[in-house]
């Protein structure tokens, strides 16, 4: 996080050079429904997944 904070001060990309960044394939986060589904799949099967604030769910999705 400290390294990232330091990087934040180094790179400035002006608005008129962000055309490629606007492409949906460049999105840093996945489609929200797909992300939720994949997160639930992994967090209910892997003890080392989850722990990042996602809704727990029940039954086999208890962790």
């Amino acid at each position: 996080m400290v390294l990232a904070g330091a990087l934040a001060g180094c790179a400035i990309v002006p608005q008129n050079r962000r055309a490629k960044l606007a492409d949906p394939t460049m999105a840093i986060h996945e489609d929200p429904l797909e992300a939720a589904q994949r997160e639930k799949f992994h967090s209910t099967r892997e003890g080392a997944a989850g722990g990042d604030g996602s809704t727990a769910g029940g039954g086999c999705g208890c962790r």
């Binding site: 996080m1 390294l3 934040a8 960044l21 840093i28 722990g51 990042d52 604030g53």
Partner: peptide, 21 residues
């Protein structure tokens, strides 16, 4: 949770995050 998303260049984006529970 804490997160930081940063444009590194006109073709590069980076994200770091921490979650504690």
């Amino acid at each position: 949770n804490l997160g930081l998303t940063q444009l590194l260049s006109p073709t590069t984006v980076a994200h770091v995050g921490y979650g504690g529970t």
